[in-house]
Design a protein around this nucleic acid. Structure first.
Lengths: 150, 150
DNA sequence: TTTTTTGCAAATGGTTTGCATCCTT
DNA sequence: AAGGATGCAAACCATTTGCAAAAAA
């Protein structure tokens, strides 16, 4: 198939292709186009956002195909899911592994980020111990923030 | 109102009552009944599970009220939400704050737990720094497990 | 009495699915 | 040629909401 107009980095295309291979799935034009669009975004997005962007870019990929492809991108380690404050599923492109903690307030929903240098070593130790290949790291404290405590 | 037949620990009832007070909300029979039922469970559950249990226990609380009450229990720090592998929202009663890490495989979904003693101190430091009241802690590494790496 | 809360049933809206057709291998 | 993938529209189904009646403050 034609892969000439794909702008996603070869590394990612290969990563996706490898995953599809191991599962006996096919590398289609639509799947490549979606990977491409996903690569061009740097924020969280919902399936409908992606649909709109693709339409604007001139592609006619269907909503069903988008819904069927996103899980494949997750399993191949290219995207991760995030559940937002409204319990909606959002997706984000995985660039690098970020090591930072989140303090999430259950009352106002505010998210505070803070870097914690030591957690990098801990992560590495754990991964070595379990022979685990890390893609993304999450460190969250759920609670009540100073403002909501009054 | 009558609170005689409530079995949830007073501590939790007070916690809920306090939250409702601060929000100008009312302590109703239905809300207390739900708190009671929630306390009697020790697993994850979905709103419908709760409805079934309450019906079996002889209560006629409506599904709508359950859906309206669960968010209040979350904001009061009595429950937390968990999104399961099927993206369904589940709820769980918060006993104590657990300090352990999860290694979650994006391919097979397997979750490996592991205790990491140092993270307790880190959590405490962070909470002190931001004057944050912790309810629940989450430490997750998303990636590919040793078995799926082949 | 005043304001919330509840219950019911209908509406919502994100996600999934059946099936004929198209595309990759 | 054979089997997986796509597109469309209909089906699903968990969750939300309007409104009149009931309960809390």
């Amino acid at each position: 198939m034609n892969t000439e107009n794909v702008n996603a980095p070869n590394e990612r295309v290969d990563q996706f292709k490898d995953y599809l291979d191991t599962q006996g799935l096919r590398l289609t034009q639509e799947r490549l186009t979606i990977l491409d669009q996903v690569f061009n975004t740097d924020t969280h997005f919902r399936p409908d956002d992606l649909l709109v962007w693709m339409r604007q870019a001139g592609y006619k990929t269907s909503k069903a195909t988008i819904y069927r492809t996103l899980p494949l991108l997750i399993k191949s380690g290219i995207l991760t899911e995030v559940i937002d404050a409204n319990n909606q599923t959002q997706y984000e492109y995985i660039g690098n592994i970020e090591e930072h903690a989140h303090l999430i307030c259950v009352q106002c929903g505010k998210i505070t980020e803070s870097r914690v240098p030591e957690i990098i070593k801990q992560k590495n130790d754990l991964c070595k111990k379990f022979n685990f290949h890390p893609i993304k790291f999450r460190n969250e404290i759920i609670g009540v923030c100073s403002e909501c405590r009054g």
